[in-house]
């Protein structure tokens, strides 16, 4: 960013950005947190380039696709962002991470969070929530996954049968529903 010097406050960590959600809630968040959302960052930078003097730091960034409940959870996730999303070194660590991911609630919540993280282009969050949702379907039967997401397997019976035969190895030894 070329015009950080415009900022009267040299400590950027205390700068706040206001986000407005779809239900018109206002969130004042630290710049460092808001900049994790690439969509916000982009908007913020464009805005800055356009009219720094006119609006300054009082810019409100609208997020018409994000509900306040979801944004609140994303921000709280941001604040305690795990140090790294790197592959766990060992089994124990992996289990701890899995537990942590489990805290993010029901699949419905996760879909909302993924949807919002996708819109906000929030990469770490997207990865985390995708993994959390993936945990739910790992090694589960096709029927379980359908029920889980409330979708119908609208394949022709013979088509599905053929596929299951071709990939029989993938259907062996899955968890009990």
């Amino acid at each position: 960013m070329s015009n950080t010097s415009e900022n009267p406050n040299p400590s950027s960590s205390s700068a706040k950005i206001t986000l407005k959600t779809s239900d018109n809630e206002l969130f004042e968040v630290e710049e460092a947190v808001a900049m994790k959302f690439c969509t916000v960052k982009q908007y913020f930078e464009d805005e800055k380039d356009n009219d720094v003097a006119a609006r300054g730091s009082s810019t409100v960034i609208p997020l018409p696709n994000v509900h306040s409940a979801v944004l609140a959870r994303l921000i709280s996730y941001c604040k305690k962002l795990p140090q790294s999303n790197a592959v766990a070194d060992n089994h124990e660590e992996e289990e701890t991470k899995k537990k942590e991911r489990k805290q993010y609630g029901t699949p419905g919540d996760l879909v909302d969070l993924i949807s919002a993280a996708n819109y906000l282009d929030f990469k770490e969050g997207l990865e985390f929530f995708n993994q959390a949702l993936a945990d739910h379907i790992q090694n589960k039967s096709v029927e379980y996954v359908r029920k889980f997401f409330g979708i119908k397997g609208d394949f022709e019976p013979h088509e599905e049968e053929k596929y299951r035969e071709e990939y029989a190895w993938a259907f062996e030894g899955v968890d009990e529903d």
Binding site: V145, R146, G153, F155, E160, R164, A170, V174
Partner: peptide, 8 residues
């Protein structure tokens, strides 16, 4: 591979 059988 199993997910392919879930839905189109």
């Amino acid at each position: 591979c199993r997910a392919c059988a879930v839905s189109p």
